Amino acid sequence: MAQSERTKMAAGEWYTCLDDDLEALRVIARDALFEHNSLPPGQRGNLGPSLMALLGSAGEGARIEAPFQCAYGFNVFLGDGAFLNAGCTILDTAPVHIGKRTLLGPNVQIYCAEHHKEATGRQAGLEIAKPVTIGNDAWIGGSAIILGGVSIAEGAIVGAGSVVTRDVPANTTVVGNPARPIKQR
């Protein structure tokens, strides 16, 4: 029996995003995001009810400001007190773990999906999913981009506008494109 595209995605294998079952999951996510992004802040609270139910997990006091976008939602895991500022986008084709008390500035983007390098593969919708892990007490500056397969360790700082293409050690500040260490505490 052939593996489903969702199973291949979860296993970190090449899969096609042009799959009806994956599209149905993205529709569920879009509906939850519409609710979260449309509710008045006083009614929404830290997370809209449908988004809260969709996420992989959300620790106590975790908050996502509107607007927010994600691909599936069920691959997003937030630690206690994690904060995502307005405009964040997470393409969560693989698990994205955001640690306790970690702060993401406005418009931070996390891209787990990597498209095929050959045009024919892209035409077929081929992607591979790579997880992202951000440790506790990290700070990701506004408009930073974090690519799939990256781990950002505890206490790290990513400067605004940086593009993170490789792992960031604990208590290290990185800046630039690609992000490079400038300071270790």
Rank of each mutant, 00 (worst) to 15 (best):
N107V: 06
F77R: 11
V108C: 09
H97I: 09
V150R: 01
L54P: 04
G149A: 04
A71T: 15
N85C: 02
G142P: 00
S38N: 13
T133F: 00
G135Y: 02
G81W: 12
T172N: 03
A29G: 10
E35M: 05
A71P: 04
F68E: 13
A124Q: 14
D19V: 03
A94L: 06
Q123M: 13
V27E: 08
C88P: 02
G141R: 06
Q123L: 13
F74N: 09
G61V: 04
S151Y: 05
Q109P: 01
A138S: 06
I134L: 07
K8H: 05
G61Y: 09
L78R: 07
I128W: 00
K183T: 10
G148E: 06
G149V: 11
R63Q: 12
E5N: 14
T102L: 02
V164H: 01
Q69D: 13
I64E: 02
G12R: 05
I110A: 01
K100G: 08
I90V: 13
P178A: 12
H97P: 07
C70H: 12
T89N: 10
P41V: 12
P106N: 10
E154F: 08
G148N: 07
E60S: 12
A119T: 09
A71H: 07
V158M: 01
R180G: 02
W14H: 05
A119F: 08
A124K: 13
L39C: 11
I157T: 15
E13F: 03
R185M: 08
G73L: 10
A138P: 10
G176A: 03
R63Y: 12
A170Y: 03
L33F: 08
G12W: 09
E23A: 14
S162F: 02
C70D: 09
G45M: 05
